[in-house]
Design a binder for these strands. Structure first.
Ligand SMILES: [Mn+2]
Ligand SMILES: [Mn+2]
Ligand SMILES: [Zn+2]
Ligand SMILES: [Zn+2]
Lengths: 139, 139
DNA sequence: CCGGATATTAGACAAAGTCCAGATTGCCGT
DNA sequence: ACGGCAATCTGGACTTTGTCTAATATCCGG
C-alpha cells in the first residue's frame, strides 16, 4: 500500500476519471484538497488557491466544489452550522469534531458497527449515513 | 404514559424548571416548538410566533433559541447546510433526513447500537453523538 | 413610586453562498 | 491562420442566515 503523491499532473487524470474536464482552476482546486487530504471550507480553498497571486474567482471556487460533489470526487461534511466542509476522502468513514477548536478528523468506518436502525420509509433509499462524534476539552 | 398537552400555561413551568425566566416572548417561542414537537428553523419559529400580528423581533427569536440551547431545553440539529434546526426532543435520539424534501424526523435511540468507536483523544469528553441517515426518493 | 437589573427591539452589519450577463478560453473545420 | 462555437470563468450584485449594538421597555424588590 504505497502512499499516493498528489501532484498537479496527477490531478488532470483524476479529474478525467470522474468525467470532469481538467482546467487550470479545477486542477488547482483539486490539488488544494488532495495534496493536503484535509477537510476544507470553500473559503479555505479560495485562500489556498489564491496565495501567490489571485487566480480563481469566488464563483469558480463554489461552482467547482459543487461540480466535484456531483461527480463524486469529494464529499460534503455538514458539522458546523456556519460553513460546509469538503472532504477529499470519499470512502465510507465517520467524523470526530472538536467543538471548541473546530478541528475535524476522520474515523475509519472499518471497525464501527451501527445496528438496529429502523427500516426506511417506502420508496426511499439511503444516500449515506453520517456519524459525528462531537467532543470538547474536559472541564 | 399519558401524552403531554403543551399549553401556553404549561410553558411557564417548563421554562422555570430550566432556570429560564418566563416572559411573553419566551413562552410563545417555547409553545411553537413544544406544541408541535417538530424540528423548526429560526425562520420558521419567527413566522409561527408572528402569524396573527408581529409580536417578537428577529433578535429575540435568535437570542431566545440560543438561551434555550444553553439551558438544555432544546437541542440543535445540524443537517442542512443552509440552516440550523431546533429540536424540542432532548432525549438521546437520531435523525432521518429526506434530502429532496428537507423533511427531518426522529429515530428512537432505544434499539440503535453503535460500537467500535475508537478511544477519544486525551483530555476530550464526548458532548454528543449525532447519527444522521440521509435518504432520497428511489430513482 | 424609585432604581437597577433583565429583556426586547430596530436596524446596521457580517459571512456564506447564489446568480447573472459579459469576457475568456480552447477547439474544430476550413 | 481564421471564424465560429461551446464550455468555462469572472466581477459584482444579490440573498439568506445569523450577530451586534445602543436605545427602549419591562419587571421587581424595597
Ligand atoms: Mn470517486
Ligand atoms: Mn431538559
Ligand atoms: Zn472525512
Ligand atoms: Zn429530533
Amino acid at each position: 500500500m504505497t502512499r499516493m503523491h498528489y501532484t498537479r499532473d496527477n490531478m488532470a487524470g483524476l479529474l478525467r476519471s470522474h468525467e470532469i474536464n481538467p482546467t487550470h482552476q479545477r486542477i488547482e482546486i483539486a490539488h488544494a484538497l488532495f495534496s493536503r487530504q484535509e477537510h476544507l471550507s470553500a473559503d479555505q480553498v479560495m485562500a489556498i488557491v489564491n496565495t501567490r497571486h489571485s487566480e480563481t474567482s469566488k464563483a469558480t471556487v463554489y461552482n467547482t466544489l459543487k461540480l466535484f460533489l456531483e461527480k463524486g470526487l469529494v464529499r460534503e461534511v455538514i458539522v458546523d452550522p456556519s460553513k460546509v466542509f469538503f472532504d477529499p476522502n470519499t470512502s465510507p468513514h465517520h467524523h470526530l469534531y472538536e467543538v471548541d477548536s473546530g478541528k475535524l478528523s476522520d474515523i475509519d468506518a472499518e471497525h464501527v458497527q451501527i445496528s438496529g436502525l429502523p427500516p426506511l420509509p417506502a420508496g426511499m433509499v439511503t444516500e449515506g449515513i453520517d456519524l459525528i462524534v462531537r467532543v470538547r476539552r474536559k472541564a
